[in-house]
Amino acid sequence: MTKKTNQSCMEMWVKTNRGNLYAKSWPGPQITQNQPPIVLLHDSLGSTQQWRDFPMRLADATGHPVIAYDRLGFGKSDPHPGLLGASFISDEAKESFSAVIEQLSIGRFIVFGHSVGGGMAVSIARAYPDQCQAIITESAQSFVEDRTLDGILVARDSFSDPSQMKRLEKHHGSKAKWVLDAWVNTWHLPEFSQWCLDEDLPLVRCPILAIHGENDEYGSSRHPKRIVALAEVPVRFECLSKCGHVPHREQEKEVLDAIRSFIEDMH
């Protein structure tokens, strides 16, 4: 089902074997059939709604259509039927993302992932080498780092404040506790401790833009540097000074400029 919300975006629902996914698209000002859409992958507590106006501005800046969707269990998508397993990052490529590109008739695409979505973006590029034209990672984790685990625990403790949980419920409704538990518990699973992108990165066949804030509270610059070191394709690393874990909100202009330049250089 597709519903037009205003002149600049459309809402859609994508069916999967485990439930329906909520998706939204922004066509951009110069859309043609030859421009692959940029597909956004949200972070561990994120949703389509939490991208705010960034997708529209990204479409305006690049001329490419932009599509975002809520992973199962997040935002307006259906509840997740169980727990996230240790393979949830690589599973996204063959589960929800597969349904999105099939049902929305997406051929070629650029994938943009924030935080854990960045790891998913790399796995997706590996799974779809002929369709993925480029990867943009923002604040992506490429392995399990103590800074990430410690930051998650600090954030978990902040949700003992009822006002913080209400903020999460604003975006995820009754699924908010599941979203928080999925983030905290999955990253601390013993079987997840060895997760990394070391096997995926050498198999990527498209250029990569890695954006990272120097003050990222959930990951050091070791993450993008690992992407640079292991990928066998051109990688552009943009380190943003005085920036934390959400560059597209903290330094939107710099992020848009970096993405625009990266995409222009691809042509």
Results as ranks from 00 to 15, higher is better:
residue 2 T to Y: 12
residue 2 T to M: 10
residue 8 S to Y: 10
residue 12 M to W: 11
residue 15 K to I: 00
residue 15 K to N: 13
residue 16 T to Q: 04
residue 16 T to R: 07
residue 18 R to A: 13
residue 19 G to Y: 05
residue 22 Y to Q: 07
residue 26 W to F: 11
residue 27 P to R: 08
residue 28 G to W: 11
residue 29 P to K: 05
residue 31 I to W: 00
residue 34 N to C: 10
residue 37 P to S: 00
residue 41 L to Y: 06
residue 43 D to K: 00
residue 43 D to L: 15
residue 44 S to D: 12
residue 46 G to V: 07
residue 47 S to D: 10
residue 48 T to K: 01
residue 50 Q to F: 15
residue 52 R to D: 03
residue 53 D to N: 00
residue 53 D to V: 12
residue 54 F to N: 06
residue 57 R to S: 02
residue 59 A to E: 05
residue 61 A to C: 05
residue 70 D to M: 15
residue 74 F to R: 01
residue 75 G to R: 01
residue 76 K to H: 14
residue 79 P to E: 04
residue 81 P to Q: 05
residue 82 G to I: 02
residue 83 L to C: 01
residue 84 L to N: 06
residue 84 L to S: 11
residue 84 L to M: 14
residue 84 L to D: 13
residue 85 G to Y: 02
residue 86 A to C: 06
residue 87 S to Q: 04
residue 92 E to Y: 09
residue 93 A to M: 06
residue 94 K to Q: 13
residue 99 A to K: 00
residue 102 E to Y: 04
residue 102 E to K: 14
residue 105 S to A: 15
residue 108 R to A: 10
residue 109 F to Q: 08
residue 114 H to N: 04
residue 118 G to W: 07
residue 126 R to P: 08
residue 129 P to T: 08
residue 134 A to L: 02
residue 138 E to V: 09
residue 139 S to F: 10
residue 141 Q to L: 10
residue 145 E to N: 05
residue 146 D to T: 14
residue 147 R to E: 13
residue 148 T to M: 14
residue 153 L to F: 02
residue 153 L to R: 10
residue 154 V to T: 00
residue 154 V to F: 03
residue 158 S to Y: 07
residue 159 F to E: 02
residue 159 F to A: 06
residue 160 S to T: 14
residue 162 P to K: 12
residue 163 S to L: 15
residue 163 S to G: 02
residue 167 R to D: 06
residue 169 E to T: 03
residue 170 K to Q: 01
residue 171 H to D: 04
residue 175 K to W: 11
residue 177 K to R: 03
residue 178 W to Q: 07
residue 181 D to V: 07
residue 184 V to A: 10
residue 187 W to F: 15
residue 188 H to T: 13
residue 195 W to S: 03
residue 198 D to N: 13
residue 201 L to T: 02
residue 201 L to S: 00
residue 204 V to I: 08
residue 206 C to K: 02
residue 207 P to F: 09
residue 208 I to V: 15
residue 209 L to S: 13
residue 212 H to L: 06
residue 219 G to V: 15
residue 221 S to G: 12
residue 223 H to T: 02
residue 224 P to N: 14
residue 229 A to W: 08
residue 231 A to F: 09
residue 232 E to P: 10
residue 232 E to Q: 15
residue 233 V to M: 13
residue 233 V to P: 15
residue 236 R to C: 09
residue 237 F to E: 15
residue 238 E to S: 13
residue 239 C to K: 11
residue 244 G to D: 15
residue 245 H to K: 07
residue 247 P to H: 12
residue 248 H to N: 05
residue 248 H to T: 02
residue 251 Q to C: 05
residue 253 K to H: 14
residue 253 K to W: 10
residue 262 F to M: 06
residue 266 M to S: 11
residue 267 H to I: 09
